[in-house]
């Protein structure tokens, strides 16, 4: 039991949301991150699903609470309430579906309007294993991300390529903001929360730690 408790100890808790068009692979991305395997036979999300995992970033144990939202326009009235207080937002598009990329701007606008101004946002080009069906180039998406001052990575929920990097990258940015005093982790609406573990026991290095649940 003690080891279980230790596993659940963390320095900070960050709230993430995953948004993007229906069929972009948001749930598969979350599942790959939590379970380290592809979710075969995945069905679409109705409303919102949830997962959490503790990762090790910059010598800190960080618990990510991730809300995976339905992509269909109609569900936005439901999912919008989940933006509030998100420390990180993943906007996912499908690199083989041009429309899902074109809608990035709308999702970004939603994130900036409904979440906090200092929410760390990353755009994720998913399904990068399907190279022969690519409809959005890496360069184009990368430039778009730069222009909008957000992070960018490509992933494959199928193979797992880049999936952990996405979450670690955003978590690191948020952690830096906390350490620079730009985010107060004790503010209720910051999307971050000081955890149960005593801060200060740096161990260095970065490796994935324990998962606590999945959707």
């Amino acid at each position: 039991m003690a080891s279980e408790k230790e596993k659940d100890q963390y320095d900070y808790l960050f709230k993430f949301i995953i948004i993007g068009d229906a069929g972009a692979g948001k749930s598969c991305l979350l599942h790959q991150f939590i379970e380290n395997r592809y979710k075969k036979g995945s069905s679409h999300t109705i409303g919102v699903e949830f997962g959490s995992k503790i990762i090790h970033v910059g010598g800190r144990n960080i618990k990510l609470q991730i809300w995976d939202t339905a992509g269909q326009e109609r569900y936005r009235s439901v999912t919008r309430s989940y933006y509030r207080g998100a420390a990180g937002a993943l906007i996912v598009y499908d690199i083989t579906n041009r429309d899902s990329y074109n809608h990035l701007v709308n999702w970004l606008q939603d994130a900036r309007t409904l979440a906090r101004a200092d929410t760390s946002i990353i755009t994720v080009g998913n399904k990068c294993d399907m190279k022969d069906k690519r409809a959005v180039t890496f360069l184009e998406a990368s430039r778009c991300a730069q222009e909008n001052d957000i992070l960018f990575l490509e992933t494959s929920a199928l193979t797992g390529e880049g999936v952990e990097d996405v979450f670690i990258k955003v978590a690191r940015v948020i952690l830096n903001k906390i350490e620079d005093g730009l985010i107060d982790p004790n503010t209720m609406v910051s999307g971050t929360h000081t955890g149960s573990q005593r801060i200060g026991s740096d161990s260095g290095g970065e490796a994935m730690s324990s998962k606590t649940c999945s959707c």
Partner: peptide
Amino acid sequence: LPAEVAPGPL
């Protein structure tokens, strides 16, 4: 869930 990450109406 903690207040700052409390889920919405669902």
